[in-house]
Design a protein around this nucleic acid. Structure first.
Lengths: 254, 254
DNA sequence: CTCAGTAGGTTGTATATACAGGTTAGTACA
DNA sequence: TGTACTAACCTGTATATACAACCTACTGAG
């Protein structure tokens, strides 16, 4: 249980810690191999292994001849998949806008408390937003955030910065779990998404961890006729990417 | 363009090639570091790096003191996600059964030809199946398979072995692309899935690659009320897994 | 001022060596 | 027979060293 970790792992942990505490910001320069040799009294090969693995794992980006730099949100977030609807829409060259329906403090109960692994009555923030792509509603976001995780959540202007972007700025989101289903929306959702009666929604329920505990729980609903998730899976070791897109899919016969 | 690859990468490519051709079967022993030193005239550190990275990438499993072994299908297939509905159902401890609606040879046209990157008129097999979980229909599978990829496709008994299992046995499926959407089913699908009018389906359109080219294209439809996809995302470097499940989700309020 | 060349720092790879620790099979001893 | 030990092999880690390739900034020549 208390096994001593290998040196290269200690180096990795040290640097990951500096990144997760914000001491090292995205695009900041990470100590070079020789600096680690000096500072940590290891051989360069050990420092090299630590930095190389951090590079493989997406934490940092190494450039031969220049140095090692903390990955920016874009490249380190391949694990977060399609966390940020605004980026997704921007990637399509469309304009994103957002309307805040609700932004309040609540006491977690029932489902929310269980999802966030907290006692009933724990402080949480409750957000409800409608995201638009080119003025067309594309997502209703219903999110609960652990108050202790993001204390200044009520002061944020979520029409300017999406909750996803805000939350990843507060602390790195390290793990996510999601459920995808098809469902029929209720009347409120149907009105918010401006969809016809009888049209289904794609529902994504996502729970995200930071520092080992769940910190936010969101239910995202998209109009079935205007939204689809796309994913791309490559073998381990090769670059992996996943994105969502509103492609005008050529209709399959039948 | 023709840059010479580093030695350790050559070793990795060699071993991956042996695995993908079937020369090395799951749980087979991979040459040890010293054997690679002898056979390939590299230093042990280089052989070590190749095998260690293959281990990190899930291709092999290394056991100190014993050796290096090819990962079995289960652990190397984390990239294939939920390819096989039968395994998914078995994982829930339920019984899986399957009805073949159609199993025929066709000429690819339109959408199918484009998806498989072949000329119009190329030979493909067309499969239509209904999968049941505990006698309840859970998926309608409409799949096209490149005939040249799996020539004996018409002789298979897909009520015994699912197309996914069969295809992965023919050759390793190495890459996948999928689109997930919510839609309303047509009458035939609604009948096959035994769902009520007004109930949506979760549609998964998946295209799978082997040896660099798309070999199969499937449209999977699930009843929205009885099926959901679940995914779990962990940071790169940590074990990654994704599965689907029919959880009786505690209903979110609203 | 402009541009070519260069020095120095940085990563990328490769090797030889060493020791620690796990696993297995066989051997020697009781 | 049975058990303890050992030899052989394997992976895991760590170090020192070397050379190549890349990038930046500076310097000196024109």
């Amino acid at each position: 249980m208390n096994a001593v970790k290998p040196r290269y792992q200690q180096l990795k942990d040290l640097i990951i810690h500096r990144i997760s505490t914000g001491e090292l910001q995205p695009s900041d320069r990470v100590p070079s191999e020789y600096e680690l040799v000096e500072a940590m009294s290891v051989s360069r090969m050990t420092a090299n292994r630590a930095l190389r693995e951090l590079n493989d794992e997406g934490y940092v980006k190494r450039i031969a001849g220049r140095g090692t730099f903390v990955s920016d949100f874009r490249s380190q977030s391949h694990l977060l998949e399609v966390q940020n609807i605004a980026d997704e829409i921007a990637g399509r060259g469309h304009s994103h806008s957002c309307t805040v329906i609700r932004q309040s403090r609540q006491h977690a109960r029932g489902e929310v408390a269980r999802a966030l692994h907290v006692e009933q009555g724990t402080d949480v923030f409750h957000l409800q937003l409608v995201h638009h792509e080119n003025a067309m509603p594309i997502q209703v976001e219903d999110r609960h955030v652990l108050a202790s995780f993001a204390p200044d959540c009520l002061e944020q202007d979520f029409e300017a910065v999406t909750p996803s972007a805000y939350l990843t700025a507060v602390a790195p989101l390290q793990e996510a779990e999601q459920i995808v289903r098809a469902a029929m929306p209720n009347g409120a959702i149907r009105a918010q998404l401006k969809i016809d009666e009888g049209e289904p929604v794609l529902v994504v329920i996502r729970r995200t961890w930071s520092k080992g505990r769940p910190v936010t729980f969101a239910r995202l609903q998209h109009p079935g006729s205007r939204y689809e998730m796309t994913g791309h899976y490559t073998p381990p070791g090769r670059p992996r990417s996943t994105s969502a897109d509103v492609v005008q899919l050529e209709q399959l016969k039948q």
